[in-house]
Design a protein around this nucleic acid. Structure first.
Length: 822
RNA sequence: GCCGAAGUGGCGGAAUUGGCAGACGCGCACGACUCAAAAUCGUGUUCCCGCAAGGAGUGUGGGUUCGAGUCCCACCUUCGGCACCA
């Protein structure tokens, strides 16, 4: 018997598939389309890790399964190749970021090939290649034309370590997502994309994605942070009736306002304090706030600190004088940067008012004529009816929320409104290794977009990497240019785009990856989009996945793509752990996929990863589990080898199998087909699909020598086909050894016969009062009465119900009988 | 504080619609083969007591039901996200 030699087999078949172009995308439009996509890797200097191995293994099963099920499948791969690490390598080691990245891309591509994943490499793309970023720039210009890209001065997140600004989504816990440094605020003029214009649609679209994990949808909802309420405009008489608008979710408490607080950065503050004795103190306070980091400033534990400005606003309804304060807890970038203080009905306001001795005015009581005991010891935040609120007295507060908003609207002093937590996407980066923003600054024409026919704006090579400034500013040949509009001397934008822009449309590019004139065509997009199954890590829940949805909606509006949601179904794979922790160099618990492939072969590695846990859960690495998978493949190998003789001769199927064993094997085979098909196709539970196949193998081993050969042969062939998506190399080898023509990966997926699943007789449980007391074998079609009768007649049951009264007998056909007796 | 997910043997996990809890695998034990070992094949393996019959059992406490890992109520723990959000 020939031995199983994974290394040799895998090398042979990988080469053969490539030569036969087996994974070239099938364009046959008579078939339904299926787009299977795994998040493309960042080509770091580290090569492939186990997390990669996991996503690609999952994606490959999905792609192979769909191909065998008659779909034309798009299954592409590329590299998310722009980004800081390449540039840091340049700074620290004097390596050219482009060369460094290209060699990493080459390396990771080779390693991906070793997994045996069925990618169409003709559609390979790298976001750092001019033929790709040319169109990233093209898309930027499209956004610009549509008024969705703009430049503004704002307080932005600044990472001092990366020397660049960051989008809100890239600040986690006040720290830089990449290097963990504390992020500070800087006032800079930067490029933004108007994602807030799409806030409502990004939110609403989530309801149309039932095949996304709840978790991710919840995270995006959270992030978008929709909040409905009213804006209320106060005026400041001492500043020429300058309006100050606040946002509140509780307009019903408007009559309870005893103070107002504005953010330290609020543009009105300098005017409010001008010439007052509070001026110096307030300005010093603001300076102090600016120095604080995001965390210090916004942590829940941080003490609420405020300062009276000395100025007063006029209450829009009562005309009362309302003192204006500045305080650390009011944020300029949420709502309007100003809030009204209602200490009687808001916990935070109560705390603040108590600390600074501000008045507390009750305007909601539990019920009419049922006043709250004063002074209050805590804020009353429950529902109730209004009091001390003029004409609104006696109105239930829920109703007053709407009524007061309406009243304000009539008086043009506010109205019902919606705010979002989502901020516009800050996309400019003061770094070299990214897509240059295709804009030119001209003294007479202002900001002018680079004409599309001049794209790409190429990254220059004559730059200095000193780690101190944006390298692009050091290239005169890049910076110095002429204005496309007036022809005068002009200066190029030296910022590059956030790399998340590159990855926001790569899945569209795959549909037409070699098009030199357009990013893709509406036809190619229509042919493949949306992605049917997208597989990747949860870490992109509000980054890449939100941005890609935004891009898709914009391109949908522009008529370039036929869908407004890019990913129909999302599978977020769990982490790979070892000894309970994520594999990391610092923990020293890293297992390299290449080592495992070297030792056991890619098929074993794939099988273990898919078998050890369902894909969305964390996976605990187990060396003995890997051994087990290897053992299983060997077991299958020997099983086929053992029955070699079956495949050299023609064994005709002779009608229905006769013996009990043959019937049973046939039933097991069909049951396995059914199970594996639904577990892969409907539930994405690859672990249980594999366990079902293992049961079939156990059944085949137990099949007696003398029994029906035709049934055995059929079951063995089915086994190999069912295993093909999981372990593509060994199944191909076995398929060939069985004397089959062509690739196992081109075989039609087997279908099951419902009739073959039916048993002649079935074992059912007999319970007394819900406890299993006996087992009973009954004919499959037996009537309830018959089953009940048989159950009550068995010796054991007779003995147990002796002296008791049978109250009720429940028969669940094919499952159990429950006798209620006491 | 709000939102989301999870809690089942020694371990990874299974139980899809309320119907025999622990499939499949790992580990362990025993047996066969072998001079021996490895590999392989077979048997057993939730816990407790026991020769057996039996009893307990899916984070905790209640409930609905003939019947609950699954449904309802109240809690506990762990993980993840958001958070002075007005």
């Amino acid at each position: 018997m020939r031995e199983y030699t994974p290394k040799e087999i895998e090398r042979k078949w990988q080469q053969a598939w490539q030569e036969a172009r087996l994974h070239h995308t099938d364009e046959d439009e008579s078939k339904p389309k299926y787009y299977a996509l795994e998040q493309f890797p960042y080509p770091s200097g580290e090569g492939l890790h186990m997390g990669h191995m996991r996503v690609y293994s999952i994606g490959d099963v999905v792609a192979r399964f769909r191909r065998m099920n008659g779909y034309r499948v798009l299954h592409p791969m590329g590299a998310d190749a722009f980004g800081l690490p390449a540039e840091n390598a340049a700074i620290n080691r004097g390596i050219n970021p482009g060369e460094w990245t290209l060699s990493n891309m080459e390396r990771i591509r080779k390693e991906q090939a070793l997994i045996g994943a069925s990618y169409d490499w003709d559609r390979y793309l790298g976001t750092c290649l001019p033929e790709y970023y040319k169109f990233t720039q093209w898309l930027f210009l499209l956004f610009y034309e549509r008024g969705l890209a703009y430049r503004k001065k704002a307080f932005v997140n600044w990472c001092p370590d990366c020397n660049t600004v960051l989008a809100n989504e890239q600040v986690e816990d006040g720290k830089c997502w990449r290097c963990d440094s504390e992020v500070t605020k800087k006032e800079l003029e930067q490029w933004f994309l108007r994602i807030t214009d799409y806030a409502e649609r990004l939110l609403e679209g989530l309801d149309r994605l039932p095949d996304w994990p709840d978790k991710v949808r919840a995270m995006q909802r959270n992030w978008i942070g929709k909040s409905e309420g009213a804006h209320v405009t106060f005026t400041v008489p001492e500043c020429d009736d300058e309006p100050v608008t606040v946002f509140t979710t509780r307009p019903d408490t408007l009559f309870g306002v005893t103070y107002m607080v504005v953010a330290p950065e609020h543009p009105l503050v300098p005017r409010l304090v001008k010439g007052k004795e509070t001026e110096a103190d307030v300005l010093a306070f603001i300076e102090q706030m600016k120095k604080q980091s995001e965390i210090e400033r916004t942590s829940t534990e941080a003490e609420k600190v405020g300062l009276f400005t000395g100025a007063y606003a006029k209450h829009p309804l009562t005309g009362e004088k309302v003192p204006i304060w500045v305080a650390n807890y009011v944020l300029m970038d949420y709502g309007t940067g100003a809030v009204m203080g209602v200490p009687a009905h808001d916990e935070r306001d109560f705390q603040f008012a108590s600390k600074y001795g501000l008045p507390i005015k009750v305007v909601i009581q539990p019920a009419a004529g049922e006043p709250l005991p004063e002074p209050l010891t805590e804020a009353y935040t429950e529902d109730g009816v209004l009091t001390g609120s003029g004409d609104f007295d006696g109105m239930p507060n829920r109703q007053a929320v709407k009524e007061i908003a309406k009243f304000l609207e009539e008086r043009k002093q506010g109205g019902w409104t919606t705010t979002y937590r989502l901020r516009d996407w800050l996309i400019s980066r003061q770094r070299y290794w990214g897509t240059p923003i295709p804009m030119i600054y001209c003294d007479s024409c202002g900001a002018v977009p680079v004409p599309k026919e001049q794209l790409p704006v190429m990254l220059p090579e004559d730059v200095v990497f000193d780690g101190k400034r944006n390298p692009l500013t050091t290239s005169d040949t890049f910076v110095q240019t002429t204005c496309p509009r007036c022809g005068n001397k002009a200066r190029r934008e030296t910022d590059t785009m956030d790399t998340f822009i590159d990855s926001s449309w790569y899945f569209m590019r795959y549909t037409d990856a070699q098009n030199e004139n357009e990013p893709f065509t509406p036809e190619s997009a229509a042919k493949w989009l949306p992605v049917d199954e997208y597989i990747g890590g949860i870490e992109h829940a509000v980054l890449h996945l939100l941005y890609s949805r935004f891009f898709t909606k914009v391109l949908y509006d522009a008529g370039l793509v036929p869908v407004d949601e890019p990913f129909k179904s999302l599978l977020t794979q769990g982490m790979v752990l070892k000894d309970g922790f994520k594999m990391s160099k610092s923990k020293g618990n890293v297992v390299s996929p290449l080592e495992i492939i070297e030792k056991y072969g890619a098929d074993t590695a794939r099988l273990f990863i898919l078998f050890a846990a369902p894909p969305d859960r964390d996976l605990e690495w187990s060396d003995s589990g890997v051994e087990g998978s290897y053992r299983f493949i060997n077991r299958v190998w020997r099983l086929i080898a053992q029955h070699e003789a079956l495949f050299v001769q023609d064994i005709p199927v002779q009608g229905e199998p006769q013996s009990g064993e043959a019937k049973e094997l046939r039933r097991l085979m069909h049951q396995t087909i059914k199970k594996v098909t639904s577990e892969i196709g409907e539930r994405s539970h690859f672990n249980t699909a594999i366990s079902a196949i293992m049961e079939l193998v156990n059944g085949l081993y137990a099949y007696p020598e003398h029994a029906d050969r035709a049934v055995l042969k059929e079951a063995l062939e089915t086994l190999v086909v069912l295993l093909a998506p999981f372990v593509p190399h060994v199944t191909e080898e076995l398929w060939q050894s069985m004397g089959k023509e062509g690739s196992v990966h081109r075989v039609d997926w087997p279908t099951y016969d419902e009739r073959a699943l039916v048993l002649d007789e079935v074992e059912i449980a007999v319970q007394i009062n819900g406890k299993v007391r006996d087992k009973l074998v009954v004919a499959t079609g037996a009537s309830r009465e018959e089953v009940e009768k048989q159950a009550l007649e068995t010796e054991r049951i007779q003995a147990l119900i002796e002296g008791k009264t049978v109250r009720k007998v429940i028969v669940v056909p094919g499952k159990l009988v429950n006798i209620v007796a006491n």
